[in-house]
Simulated scan of single mutants.
Amino acid sequence: MSAGFPEVRARRLRGTAALRSMVAETALRPAELVLPVFIKEGIADPQPISSMPGVVQHTRDSLRKAAAEAAEAGVGGIIVFGVPADKDAQGSAADDPEGISQLAIADIRAEVGDGLVVLADLCLCEYTDHGHCGIVTPGGSVDNDSTLERYASTAIAQARAGAHMVAPSGMMDGQVGAIRKALDGAGFRDVPICAYSAKYASAFYGPFREAAEGAPRFGDRATHQQDPANAREALREVELDLAEGADMVMIKPALSYLDIIRRVADTVRVPVAAYQVSGEFAMLEAAAANGWLDRDKAIMETLTSIRRAGASVILTYWATEVARRLRA
């Protein structure tokens, strides 16, 4: 029989901050954080996002500054979401060499070089006038296979603009394979793919849709995003993406899906990313603004929980702030 109290006193290792730090099982590093940013075409000044305090739709100049600040703080990466001035049914701005996302990617590379990993979100919802993630049929459904052609073309445009990594988020079947084939054929064999492998049809995306101006004009995305009730399905999606050539897999959202992060991390041998999404950000900021939570402690606790669950990369709107805090 093992010894118990009073011989064993677990509190002995919690007596001081230095001691707690020494035996901490989980640690955050600035390099593990990725900052999501929004770049909007045709605005003269950064535009605040009402549902996401402190987050803005950037101009090209303000985005360069934000990228430089993130790099200086030690943030590992930045992921770009573009908001074009003109949208159409095909999402033509997504793969336009002069489209706002491609210009933003080139701007960031010019500003920080390889000081940040520049990820390009690869989807059509920000670029289509109907707000869906792909090509919509006359009957109103998203056509999987014709959408893959648009994703392949967009991946090449993003790589040409200077993206270090592309991140397909549309949850189309076969998207990783189509993108890998396109990148390889265009001479971008060394550009990795971070697949949004388990992206759930979540209620926590609302503020993002304001920021990216990409809410569906009709219907929803439940036909291609995952059902929140399912866990085994996530493992299947991850397995399929890895077989098609994914170099990293992502779980989105994070806090409601810590069990999925853990199961995936225990299964795969590639980096696992998790996206602390806009609704998770907004609810914490709102609670803190009302005095219901200690904001700084809650931010660190949520990020630590995501890291503890098994994520090796975390996308968070607090990336620069937290990186500065960690370095301090």
Rank of each mutant, 00 (worst) to 15 (best):
R109P: 10
D173Q: 12
Q175E: 05
Q158W: 10
T154G: 15
D121S: 00
V142S: 02
V112N: 04
E149G: 07
Y127W: 10
V112Q: 02
V136L: 05
H164W: 13
H132F: 08
G139L: 09
M172V: 06
E111A: 14
A152S: 13
V142G: 01
T128G: 04
M172K: 06
L119F: 12
Y127D: 12
A152E: 09
H130N: 11
G162P: 08
L119R: 03
L124Q: 04
A163I: 13
R150M: 09
A110S: 15
A167M: 07
A167Y: 01
L148T: 03
A152I: 04
S153M: 05
M172C: 14
H132G: 05
A155T: 00
A110F: 13
V166E: 09
G134C: 04
A155K: 01
E111D: 05
T147A: 05
S153Y: 03
T137Q: 12
C123N: 13
D173H: 06
G131F: 01
D121I: 00
D173P: 02
A152V: 06
D114F: 11
I135V: 15
G113P: 09
V136I: 06
L119N: 06
E111K: 11
D145S: 13
G134T: 05
L124I: 05
R160A: 13
S153C: 05
A159L: 06
T137M: 07
M165I: 14
Q175C: 03
C125A: 07
T154Y: 06
C133N: 10
A152Q: 13
T154H: 08
G139T: 14
G162S: 03
C125L: 01
M172S: 15
M172F: 12
M172R: 12
Q158M: 15
S141T: 15
D121C: 00
G139R: 14
M171G: 08
L116P: 05
I135M: 02
A159V: 00
A157P: 10
